[in-house]
Design a protein around this nucleic acid. Sequence first.
DNA 1: CTCATCATTATGTACATACTTATACGGATT
DNA 2: AATCCGTATAAGTATGTACATAATGATGAG
Lengths: 233, 233
Amino acid sequence: MTGDARLSWQAVQEIVRQRIRQRIWKPGDQIPHEADLAQELGCARATVNRALRGLADAGLLERRRKAGTRVALNPIRRAEFSIPLIREEIENRGERFDFRILTREMRPPPPDIQARLQIGEDAPILYLQTLYMANHMPYVFETRWVNTRAVPAAQEARFDTMSPNEWLVREVAFDGGDFALSAISASTQEAFILGCSAGAGLLALDRTTRNGRQMITSVRLVFHAGYRLHTRA
Amino acid sequence: MTGDARLSWQAVQEIVRQRIRQRIWKPGDQIPHEADLAQELGCARATVNRALRGLADAGLLERRRKAGTRVALNPIRRAEFSIPLIREEIENRGERFDFRILTREMRPPPPDIQARLQIGEDAPILYLQTLYMANHMPYVFETRWVNTRAVPAAQEARFDTMSPNEWLVREVAFDGGDFALSAISASTQEAFILGCSAGAGLLALDRTTRNGRQMITSVRLVFHAGYRLHTRA
DNA sequence: CTCATCATTATGTACATACTTATACGGATT
DNA sequence: AATCCGTATAAGTATGTACATAATGATGAG
């Protein structure tokens, strides 16, 4: 802030944020259009565009061609939860990361997994159960199906030093996927593995990952009791 | 696709996506820099920049000045869950939205809420318990503390046609907040209200909303058993 | 050999300009 | 009054240019 220079798009964003915060522009209100704002603030329309687009992405504004830009009626509806990279999450806290493969076999997948992986028959595919630990305490319990039709190399892979997740990340390109968060009641097996009482509420994250049209793997992560996924907006 | 025209930034994105998918550019690899790509594809650097910036936002690429752009080692770590707007979510499914205020009183908040709302003393503030219903079935149970020091009008508000959430959205500007997702075991009260068995695993969403530095409200939403929050990336 | 310095380089930002696209609105037609 | 349609408008996109900033790697002084 040497005193002047032309406004950066971040500066424009901050100005708009303030006006919204101070209710100069109220929810539902139209705000001046790009050209006017650019002139008022003494910068290029492109700069205003960049700023407003950002705010729209963040959900603070709603924009439609010709209709103009208005302050979103419901400001905070999006929140980006970053899916934890288990190893990183644990090591960042200075704790010791560790994992143990509990099950590894070829097994015909149940119908819901067949559907998710979009494989028709019930020929066996790779099934893995892995327990991830922080300081030797159970952290998250992973149940994974790998579409060995799409990733045949997974059958030979050894998961002694590299976790199944890390192996897959290295070996196949991911492209997108589906996520679902839900709460489950710990089964006796889950309770035993995670060291909690049966029936405890546990956070479960289901993820199916694809590469183009190929479905690669479907995972359920069941976190230890008390786990929280948080973010700020 | 009339056959030509110069590439749009979306087209550039798609090309890059494909190259990553086909492992022409593997995780960790450097990709050509903007100027080269622009020349190769026959478009402006700004266009390439827009495309690559988007992919970096999405977590598919990692960019650093001078160091260049490389394919992210771990592609999918971010996932944006959109926080449901209860009314919308229910009505979009063609179901009947309804809510009932179960508790409404001034009450001194417990320490954790005091901390979250950043209010020092334990003078009473507004406490609300609301049940939201879809087709008259319990959908989500909301426990809310409103910082009446910041929003005095809330004390007089009537929540007969407008839910507390909708009222707040209309009356005060939000700016940001903290979110946390966790799983809980239904207490007997929660089980009774939501019509599930005590101890059932339920998804809980805690949210504290602020306007600038003022903390406005702190809410816990406890969803009905079986609720899933999902998204695709 | 170590550390500071500086040129180099790739991304990042700002701008003027021009053109494209979606769509709200008003006027014409039924 | 309802429907259709053209047009003006505001956002969206593309480009060339210029300069800013950060990080790397080489150079030179101590």
